[in-house]
Computed example of a mutant assay.
Amino acid sequence: MAIAKRFRIGHDEVFGHGAYLVSPVTPVSDFERSTKESKVQQLDKDTGMPLWSVDVLDADPEAAKKSRTVSVKLSGKVQPVPPAPQGGMPFTLVVFDGLSALPYIDDNGNFARIAWSFKADAMRAPGKGDQPSTASSGSGSSAAA
């Protein structure tokens, strides 16, 4: 049996208590191709489209300190647009469609630990069905982060 390095996982399996945006959507830099004078945006290895990143707070009260805030990558020709904040909340609740995870070893610090790289096809407001609220037209879920 072959198991892919990156695998599909449901939003609720990762963010069972909710995911709240805590940063704007930003381009992912390609550090191998960028120079001081020219910043190059990383491309998705599967779709060839530019990669974008957004930080979210995992609302699980039992989440470890290092795991409370995670980055989720999205691919698309244009910058994805997050859903509008609702109900006067300071953070925007978001759902990721087509979420995938890639485990890796984080050996920064005194002890090595398993960490996760997340990528999604789209993001949307909760309860909006399958209507993603991104300006993205492409996706993919198997590229390494």
Rank of each mutant, 00 (worst) to 15 (best):
A4T: 02
R6V: 11
F7W: 12
G10T: 03
G10I: 01
G10N: 10
H11R: 02
E13S: 10
E13K: 00
V22Q: 14
S23E: 01
P24D: 14
V25R: 04
T26C: 13
T26F: 15
T26P: 01
P27Y: 08
S34I: 06
T35C: 10
T35P: 10
K36S: 04
K36D: 08
K39M: 14
Q41N: 09
Q42C: 06
Q42A: 13
L43T: 07
L51S: 00
V56P: 02
D60S: 06
P61A: 03
P61C: 04
E62K: 15
A64P: 01
A64E: 15
K66G: 02
K66Y: 08
S67I: 00
T69E: 13
T69D: 08
S71R: 11
L74F: 10
L74C: 02
S75H: 01
S75L: 08
G76N: 14
V81P: 00
P82W: 09
P83W: 14
A84S: 08
Q86I: 06
G87D: 07
G87A: 08
P90E: 09
P90G: 03
F91S: 14
V94E: 12
V95L: 04
F96E: 00
D97P: 01
G98E: 08
L99K: 02
L99Q: 11
S100P: 01
A101F: 07
L102C: 06
Y104G: 13
I105E: 03
D106V: 05
N110W: 09
N110P: 03
F111K: 07
R113Q: 04
A115W: 05
S117Y: 12
S117T: 08
A120C: 05
A120Q: 12
M123N: 06
M123A: 14
R124W: 07
A125F: 03
K128D: 04
K128W: 06
G129A: 14
P132C: 00
P132D: 11
T134W: 10
A135D: 11
G138L: 15
A143W: 12
A144Q: 10
